[in-house]
Design a protein around this nucleic acid. Structure first.
Length: 654
DNA sequence: AGCACGCCGACT
DNA sequence: GTCGGCGTGCTC
């Protein structure tokens, strides 16, 4: 068997036209060092210029017939780009019409020489550790366990309770569910990746894991770590021992050999979408990886996203529910005078106020309020319903007062607009007004009570079980020991007034997550919200709510009932991309102007056409980047064509 | 991105 | 004749 003479290298460059493998010769001195996965330095176009890259594979003959350059050096002997991660990066980037190297950069943290030296010098102690599997509580015995053993894909409804660990830390029951599930993977000698949105969830999950697993089995990978810590965690994943990797969205790309489980907690959280190109959602990456490696997949949440609901409906995910079911006590309450001037000032309904007063004698009470500030929107001047585009149902926006309102999604001018609900023909600006409730107002409504404020600037993760009024903005709610004795969700009306395709879905999630912090049987008051939303929470049937949301999106041809691609760039480049995509005119929303030089168009299409359209659009991006730097003679000012798949952001704008 | 190649106007 | 202008295209 002759030695391979060609190394196929992924070059670390942001240019879309370089997103493929390049063939390099292997100099005699490096034949042993050049192996798949190592980081290398390679010349790229004319000697002198060198690029970083990764050896992806070795071959005897390449597909390139020209003269080959040779690899300049091997940066380190560690095979940091594993075969699995390379395949995953390739597939995920293709699905997202992006570059594989952008995914590889998320997967492999920056190299830290000292950390690497220490890792290479370590003595392989390999203690034989016996891991005891822990039963997954709150579900029918063996259901979650057998799903893991068989490599199934499941959508699991989380248990809306909090649990006190033996360490004294209180965590959401969901964290213990994932920890217990992970024990079965590790006991089988395999590995698990658990993905959470932020560090608060990660802390809970880590505490829960330490309850059931030795601490040495847990590896953290997240953005808050220092570079050395992150690289140290990453290198541990390259070893052989059974591990559970916990981290934020990019942990989904961790190099875990012999993967038994990927779990994603709370996939509806906006932090699960990567804000860097190609903007891949952790849920989508997890789905691709599950298919590739045949491991189990758990999507866990208190609420259900329409995306997960869609996967359930097409049979890709199977539902698992707690058994026996745990149904929180949710009380929808209309606004009514509280008969108490202070409670009235804080706009707390009397029944909720009385219940909170009573609960405050026994422990902490949570008051959830909206985050300050929200964007103004246009509404019917008569009935107050959001003003919508007659063509595509998008929200209407006004550049400046006096302008004819135009659709924020498709750009159609709303000339001769009439309200669908009351037939009025005038719009008004909503949103900027409205007295925001202050912590002082709330505190005054409950005189003599300890007040704890938790928001973005004042993060509080835990409160004890002594009486306190805990005022938190949504998403920043602390966990109370023993659970809150009552929960007041006060700003429902303000939260639902946000203009967004996902607003109802998001509200159900925010409220469900807050309600799940209550003690068993504690009353949870949902103020100012009725109808289907309130019913979903009272019956604790978030899946049913997601089902009807998804049915609405199907009727309107909105994501996730269809896939979408957002194109931005010069009008010429965007129009050309629209043409080659072959998408019907009815599914082309736009173009709308972004600034003087760029426009945006949204394409929507069925899932069946997804990979084909992603490939065509990707080719257009490459074409726009190479041939003809349009207009501005190849100088900065040439506007790149950008494609973003499955981005719901333009649908969120008003 | 850089950098070489190449095909038309003023030069010793 | 040929030096060099920048538009065009490629990077193993």
């Amino acid at each position: 068997m002759s030695r391979a003479r060609i190394a196929r290298v992924l070059v670390d460059s942001p240019l879309p036209q370089l997103d493929r493998l390049f063939d390099y010769g292997i100099p005699d001195g490096l034949v042993d060092a050049v192996v798949p996965g190592v980081r290398v330095r390679v010349p790229l176009r004319s000697a002198g210029r060198v690029s970083d890259g990764f050896v992806v594979e070795l071959a005897d003959a390449g597909d390139y017939s020209g003269p080959l350059s040779e690899i300049e050096s091997v940066v380190s002997p560690l095979r940091v780009l594993t075969e699995d991660v390379w395949t995953l990066a390739r597939r995920v980037s293709e699905r997202a019409a992006g570059s594989a190297i952008d995914i590889v950069r998320l997967a492999i943290p920056t190299r830290q020489v000292r950390v690497e030296k220490a890792f290479l010098a370590r003595i392989e102690s390999a203690p034989i550790r016996v891991i005891e599997p822990a039963a997954v509580e709150h579900y029918a015995p063996g259901v979650v366990e057998s799903a893991i053993a068989r490599g199934e894909r499941v959508a699991v409804d989380a248990v809306p309770l909090v649990t006190e660990l033996s360490s004294g830390i209180t965590v959401g029951a969901w964290a213990l569910t994932l920890a217990q599930a992970a024990t079965h993977v590790l006991a089988a000698g395999r590995r698990a990746i658990l993905v959470v949105p932020d560090y608060r969830d990660q802390d809970q999950l880590q505490a829960a894991l330490e309850e059931v697993l030795p601490a040495e089995c847990i590896v953290r990978l997240d953005a808050r770590q220092s570079n050395p810590d992150r690289y140290r965690g990453f290198l541990r994943c390259l070893g052989d021992e059974p591990l559970v990797v916990i981290g934020n969205r990019s942990a989904v790309y961790a190099p875990a050999r012999d993967l038994g489980l990927i779990a994603v907690w709370d996939d509806g959280d906006a932090l699960q979408r990567e804000p860097l190109a190609p903007y891949v959602h952790a849920r989508d990456a997890a789905l691709v990886r599950q298919e590739q490696q045949g491991c189990a997949l758990i999507m866990l949440g208190h609420a259900r996203t329409t995306e997960v609901e869609r996967l359930v409906e097409v049979g890709w995910l199977h539902e698992v529910r707690p058994a026996p079911s745990v149904i929180p006590k949710v009380v929808p309450t209309a606004y009514q005078s509280a008969n108490d001037p202070l409670a009235d000032r804080a706009r707390i309904p009397s029944s909720a106020w009385h219940a909170a007063r009573e609960a405050l004698a026994r422990g902490p009470v949570l008051v959830q309020v909206a985050r300050p500030g929200y964007s103004p929107q246009l509404a019917c001047a008569e009935c107050g319903q959001t003003a919508r585009c007659v063509r595509c149902e998008g929200p209407l926006a006004q550049r400046q007062s006096g302008d004819v309102p135009a659709c924020a999604w498709c750009g159609a001018l709303a000339i001769g607009w009439r309200c669908r609900h009351c037939d009025a023909d005038r719009v008004r600006l909503l949103g900027a007004a409205g007295a925001s409730r202050t912590a002082e107002d709330l505190g005054r409504a409950f005189p003599g009570v300890r007040v704890i404020i938790a928001d973005g600037e004042r993060p509080v993760q835990h409160v004890d079980d002594r009486p306190a009024l805990v005022i938190a903005t949504r998403g920043a709610e602390p966990i109370a020991r023993g659970g809150y004795r009552a929960v007041l969700l006060l700003d429902g009306e303000r939260m639902i007034a946000r203009e967004s395709l996902r607003v109802a879905e998001d509200c159900v999630r925010w409220w469900s997550n807050a309600i799940a912090l209550a003690a068993r049987g504690a009353p949870c008051y949902l103020v100012g919200i009725g109808g289907e939303l309130a019913r979903a929470l009272v019956t604790w049937n978030q899946a049913g709510f997601a089902r009807s949301e998804l049915a609405d999106r199907r009727r309107l041809r909105f994501p996730p009932a269809v896939r979408v691609a957002t194109l931005t760039g010069s009008i010429d480049a965007v129009e050309s991309a629209v043409r080659v995509s072959g998408v019907d005119a009815g599914d082309v929303l736009g173009p709308v102007d972004i600034d003087s030089a760029r426009v945006r168009t949204i394409l929507r299409f069925d899932y069946a056409r997804g990979s084909e359209i992603a490939a065509v659009l990707r080719a257009e991006v490459v074409r726009a980047a190479t041939s003809r730097r349009r207009g501005a003679r190849g100088r900065p000012g040439a506007i790149p064509l950008r494609v973003r798949m499955d981005d719901i952001e333009p649908f969120l704008e008003s």
